[in-house]
Each structure stands twice: as C-alpha cells, then as structure tokens.
Nucleic acid binder design. Structure first.
Lengths: 253, 253
DNA sequence: CCTTCATAACTGGTACATCAGTTTTTCCAG
DNA sequence: CTGGAAAAACTGATGTACCAGTTATGAAGG
C-alpha cells in the first residue's frame, strides 16, 4: 500500500495517522482537526487534508463538510458486509493458492500457520495487553497475505489488504481481536490449501471466514449492548478529545 | 460512488474529470496539469489537486511527484489482474443473488439480460460509434450491478463497481468494448442465476467472466502489437495534448 | 547530422490567508 | 432554573503565492 509519496509530507501524515488509528491511539469517534493535526505533525494543513482525503477513501475516517472529521465508527452491518467481501476475496485467493503456489510458498504457509496458532494459544492463556494483541494480529495478517501473494495479482492482493485494514481497525480498536480459536485452526486450513484441490481449498477458506464472521459479530453485538446503557456518544461536546487521548504524543511512533 | 462532496468544487472537478476519462475525451496517456485544468474548470488548483488525488487512488490516473500527472495506461497484466479480481467478486455476487434475491429482482434481471443481449446484437450489426458503445456499456454495467445489488452489502457493491470502473476505462478508451458475443450470452447466465443452485450460479458466472477475460486479453494484445510499429508513446514531447484533444471543450458535459 | 549540457518552462507540493458553514458557548428573557 | 436566540469559536473548503524538482528546449561543440 505504500507509495512513492511516503517521502512527502502528505505521505508522512498518512502513515502516522493510519498507524495511530490502528494502534488504538486514536479510537473510533475521535475528532480530527486539520489545524490541530498540522500543528502536532509540524506541517501545514494542506498535506494533512490530503492524507485525510486518502484515509477517508479507505473508509477509516469520515468527514462532514465544514463540520468536522472523525475516526469512523463501525456498525454491525458494516462488519457483516466486510466479512462478505472477505469471503469473496479470500475464497478466490485460496483457490488460486492451491492452483498456483510453488513449493516454497506452500512450506512458508505451513510454518506461518504453526506460528499463528501458537501465538493465538499464548494470547488466550496470557493476558491480552494491547501490545500483544497487535503483535498477534500482525502475524494473522501476514498469514492471509501470504496466501494472497501467491496469486501474483496486485489488484487482488490490494483488495484483500484493504478489506483487512478496515476490519482490523474496527475490531482491534473495539478490543474484539482476542478470541479463542480452535487450537489447530489455521494449521488445518493451511494443510488443506497446500494439499487439497482448488475447490476444496476454497471451501475450507469459506468455512474459516464464516466461522470468524459469526463469532466476531456475536461479540460485537454484545459489546455494543454492554456499552449502550447511558446511550453514550450520541451527544455532548466532542472537541478536544485528541488531547484527552494523549495529546501530541498520540501521533508519535 | 457519489458523495456529499459533489456539491463542492472538488466534487465537480472529480465528476467532470471522471466523465471525460470514461467518455474518451481524455484518452489514456493524456497529460493533466493542475493549473491548466483549474483554469478550464474555472476554479483554483487546490480542488483540482484533491480530485486528482481521489482519481489516483481509484487507479484512473497516475502521478509522479513534480513531474506530471496523466491518464493511466493499462498493461495486459493489469487487465488480467482486473479480471481475476472480478472473478472473485462477481462469482460471490452471483452466489448471493441465487441465495437471496427476491422475485422482483429475479424478474428484473431476466429483462435486463434480454435488453443487453439485444443491444449487443444491434451493436455487432450496426456501426460502432463511440456513443453507441458507451450506451451498451452502460446497460452492461447496470446488468452486473443489478446482481451485485441483491446482496445488499455496500462493501461488495462498491468493490464490484470499482473493479468495473477500472476495466471500463481501459477497455472503452482502448476501443475494445465492441466484441461479438454469443447471442443469448447474458440471457443464459441470468436464467441460471434465477433458477439454479447458488453453486451452479457461481460457476456460471465464473465461466462468463473467464470467457470475456480470454477474449479481451487476446484483443488487447493484438491491439498493442498493431500500434507498436514505430514504438510510439515512448518519447517525444507529450505536453499540450489536452488542447489537441479538444481543448477546453473536452471537459464540458 | 548527432550528442551534451545549460537554461527556461512547467509540474506537483506546501504554506498561509481567508471564506463560508457548523457547532458550541454565552447570555438574557421567561 | 429553563429555553432559546445571538455570538463566538471552530471546521473544512478554497484561493493565491511560492518552492523545489523534472522535463523540454535549444545553443554549442563534436
């Protein structure tokens, strides 16, 4: 996803904002002011605006003209839709992997699956610090991108990355990432992708995605219900929340 | 795809540029200068820059920092990749249609298929003026979007629209849109989607997409070979091409 | 005629100032 | 206190000016 523009200010603003959103330093709902961000990032408002435009087109941010910009808050419908999209993309990705992947790629996938299952198990046992969850999530993304990469089709790889980005943001910042998975969950999937027919691989991936989908949506709903007691985040002053979340420090690496 | 920003200057620039690209008034390779465009559109360079940024993120335009912006030229690999992506998305879309679509949607799809086949036939017989091709292409898009819409999942619908947008631009401006299709091509597909099982519907769509993919890529290659005689568009002054393509008029509706 | 290289023209990137619309706060009447 | 209107503060949108990097141009030398 990185481009030639990362050297420019606009690219810096984009990267830093994106990272801050992913790592939970700017949770969903946080207001983002161009001027404020420009000041904290040490640049003018224009490149910040460009970065915001880009993040908005990726769905991480929403902006109402002349009325404010904020980190987007996901609805259950959106999460559901995102899983539908992922089912389409990753199912095909799995099929292509089973068809085309060479020996090296297959070996690497098996190893990645082992690592991922181990990390998930460790996470389920130990405590779920934000840092550890982020690390496991990175491994998880790497696993799926390994499958996608075997297709050799940039358009497909980008689309999968994009859909994951959206989901990751929503889930991670909503503290939904930590969930108990079957112990050999990814390993079984990987073995199927490596040795079964393309159709079987696609179906295995479909099952995989749908399982997660149901689990995540169930958790999300219960989370939403739990926090909807005093009907929060509906009214009230929502300015200056950036400072409350750590101020200038929230944007540093 | 349209948003609240269409009322703003940035939205106007976006819409007009997009339309001009689609309708062939700005063929692939045309250099786009912010200042020049700003002048012709009667606005400043900033909203034009925002529109360009947006179009770039959609893949219609490419821009090298401080060295120029131009309408993107597709490579055969990109076209192939786009069809791979479409196979993933539309296959799933067809499956969902067969699963979920209500009676009204099924009826409308059958009618749309009839209309599309008729239009294609007429196009194959008559002459292929740019205007007529554009019209048929609109019907074609509507047909596929009808299938996508039945899923009720915005993320999927947008992804399909986006992938079509890219392809349409590349093909249409490359004068590849006109091709001879089997007479009942879309009608058979529609009937399968309407009455067969989800799996059969998905497979029918897969065949459909792959058929077009092979056909289009073959034509594209022969087109590229045909025009690569004097090794064109490699060197030579490429400025002021906007004026050559109709000047200010090229951006009007 | 072809290459080389300096210069001029043009490009996108950024800063700053200002405009117009929205939200929050303030303050006064009830 | 309450309600509501006016004003203040803030927001994104846009215009203008300028900078730094790239490309085209054309003159000078082979």
């Amino acid at each position: 996803m990185k481009g030639r523009n990362d050297a420019r200010l606009t690219g810096q603003a984009y990267s830093q904002l994106k990272a801050a959103i992913f790592e939970g330093r700017l949770p969903p709902g946080t207001p983002l002011s161009r001027r404020r961000l420009a000041e904290e990032l040490g640049m003018s408002a224009v490149p910040v605006g460009d970065a915001i435009l880009r993040l908005e087109s990726e769905g991480l941010i929403e902006s109402r003209p002349r009325a404010g910009t904020r980190v987007r808050i996901a609805t259950p419908q959106e999460i559901h839709g995102n899983y539908v999209l992922r089912e389409a993309l990753e199912t095909h990705s799995a099929r292509l992997f089973a068809e085309n992947a060479d020996g090296r790629a297959r070996e690497r996938l098996l190893k990645a699956a082992e690592r991922l299952d181990a990390a998930n198990l460790a996470l389920a046992r130990g405590k779920c610090s934000q840092f550890r969850r982020a690390r496991v999530e990175r491994i998880h993304v790497a696993f799926h991108m390994l499958i996608a990469a075997a297709s050799g089709v940039p358009a497909l790889i980008d689309a999968i990355e994009r859909s994951r980005v959206l989901l990751f943001n929503r889930l991670f910042t909503g503290s939904l990432a930590a969930s108990h998975l079957p112990e050999r969950w990814h390993r079984d999937l990987a073995e199927c992708l490596v040795s079964a027919s393309p159709e079987a691989a696609a179906e295995a991936m479909r099952t995989h995605v749908r399982y997660r989908q149901q689990e995540v949506i169930a958790r999300f709903k219960e989370l939403v219900e739990a926090r909807s007691g005093p009907a929060r985040m509906v009214r009230g002053p929502q300015r200056r929340t950036l400072e409350e979340n750590g101020g200038a420090g929230a944007l540093l690496d």
